[in-house]
Design a protein around this nucleic acid. Structure first.
Length: 436
RNA sequence: GGAAGCGUGGCCGAGUGGUUGAAGGCACUAGUCUUGAAAACUAGCGAGGAUGAGAGUCCUCCGUGAGUUCGAAUCUCACCGCUUCCGCCA
């Protein structure tokens, strides 16, 4: 969420910056809502002040044993008037909140302008693209002989799920463990185990709700044994996490943490669940785009002055994994039009996939500045002792499924076997290759 | 699933429906004392918001939401969460 003060002080400026990412800010609507809010809030507070003063008078008079009927008559209608004003205020505040809740973050000044993926800017290329003296297979063809089974997964669940068996399943586990160990032992992250289902507040805090409900899987909470069909309350549900970013970042929701505890660095390995609504027909082959995939996620909560330095570091931590695995990749800076809702600046890391003859996203590292922190009231006590919003960041380090794809395709041999990268061998019981 | 209890500031913990945003303590910050530190003493110390150039003034917040009342941390109801005991279970 943006700071409402920023909209009040420089509405046109904010609108202009949001326009660069393709968001049209309805400035008329905002001015109208703000005007209403101001009028109603002032009036409500006046009435509240009057009620408070009168009630104190009554209390004081009663204490002295005086007659209070005159004062009571005076405020007879105050209650209704106040109730009405408060209801109006609630309504306009909710509308204002909803208005603010769907405005995306403002891009950092350094974000390249652009409309789509095509306008992203390449920052660097790392590693050597492998040259094969045979026709490179994609991971589906390679995996078929190694234990990758989409047909059975489809029988068990449906489309966009995968089943791994044998060495391939172990390689998947090895990748996750290798990533976790690297980040905890070498990069200073604290390992966390988190819930995979979260409540609505958590989803709102990190920005998945209210705008991207269609991307999430919902799980109804079986409860309320009594039939409360007369109830106005909406049924409560859990959401399956689309990324560990959600539960991990929410660690600091509604907290005021000590200055000395910064930066906070967490890593979590979790499954991620995405409905992939709206991506029918895209990446239907293979395990590139699934309803369920594993990811090792890096999350940091930092002092506002440190967040851009922290982003560079976090990006480096993710890159380290690819370097250790010997996978070629490139880093791109997303343009204004391609960034996610909550991000102020995002780097994507794209790994080379020989079969597709292109780079594909394997990590996304973002600085959200105070956007998420404001939604979740995540603060620290600054040097002056005052609460101040944190900056939050996160990045994949890395998406495990796509890393598995990259290893298969980049390390394949002419005979259909796959050489296991050195760093993974300790996790594979010393195994050097996967063979059909 | 059954029974009972409990949710108050960064933390602990008082709180008879009426100047209670809330006693007291801890922590924290200044100051006094001390060679220095500790201890002791003194003072300060919740968050969010409206308005104002500012000093200030005002509003909201005691798990959440409704309700009763001129007035609710305090009374009523529902929900959420936590604790303990029994049952069941990985």
């Amino acid at each position: 969420m943006l700071d409402i003060q920023a909209l009040r002080n420089d509405l046109e400026g904010v609108a202009a910056r949001l326009a660069t990412r393709g968001f049209v800010l309805d400035t008329k609507k905002f001015e109208q809502l703000e005007g209403e809010r101001k009028t109603i809030q002032t009036r409500t507070q006046e009435l509240q002040a009057k009620r408070n003063a009168t009630s104190k008078q009554i209390g004081a008079a009663k204490a002295k044993g005086e007659d209070v009927s005159v004062i009571m008559a005076e405020v007879a209608t105050l209650g209704d008037e106040l109730k009405q004003a408060e209801n109006q205020l609630d309504a306009v505040l909710i509308t204002l909140q909803q208005f603010l809740g769907v405005i995306p973050n403002m891009p950092h000044a350094s974000v390249p302008p652009g409309k789509s993926e095509a306008d992203n800017v390449e920052v660097r290329k790392v590693g050597n693209i492998p040259k094969f003296d045979f026709a490179a297979k994609d991971h589906v063809d390679l995996g078929e002989k190694l234990g990758l089974d989409f047909d059975t997964a489809a029988k068990i669940s449906g489309a966009r799920f995968s089943l791994l068996k044998g060495g391939l399943a172990r390689l998947h586990r090895a990748l996750a463990q290798f990533m976790l160990d690297t980040h905890t032992e070498q990069h200073g992250y604290t390992e966390t185990y988190v819930p995979y289902m979260v409540n609505e507040d958590s989803m709102y805090s990190t920005g998945q709700l209210p705008k991207f409900k269609q991307d999430l899987f919902e799980v109804p909470i079986a409860m309320n044994p009594v039939d409360r069909s007369d109830s106005q309350e909406k049924p409560r549900i859990f959401y399956l996490i689309p990324t560990a970013e959600v539960p991990v970042t929410n660690i600091v929701r509604d907290e005021i943490v000590a200055l000395e505890s910064l930066p906070m660095k967490f890593v979590a390995h979790t499954p991620c669940f995405r409905s992939e609504a709206g991506s029918y027909g895209r990446d239907t082959r293979g395990m590139i785009r699934q309803h369920q995939f594993d990811k090792v996620e890096l999350v940091q909560m930092v002092h506002p002055d440190e967040s851009y330095a922290a982003l560079e570091q976090l990006l480096g931590h993710a890159e380290t994994i690819l370097q250790k695995l010997g996978l070629p990749y490139r880093v791109v800076k997303l343009c204004t039009g391609d960034m996610g809702f909550s991000a102020a600046l995002t780097y994507d890391i794209e790994v080379w996939l020989p079969a597709q003859n292109t780079y594909r996203e394997i990590s996304s590292c973002s600085n959200f500045e105070s956007f998420q922190a404001r939604r979740m009231q995540a603060r620290f006590r600054n040097a002056q002792g005052k609460p101040e919003l944190l900056h939050t960041l996160n990045g994949s380090g890395l998406a495990v499924g796509r890393t598995l794809v990259a290893v298969l395709e980049n390390c394949q041999q002419a005979d259909g076997s796959v050489v296991i990268p050195e760093v993974l061998r300790p996790y594979m019981g010393g195994m050097e290759k996967l063979s059909p």
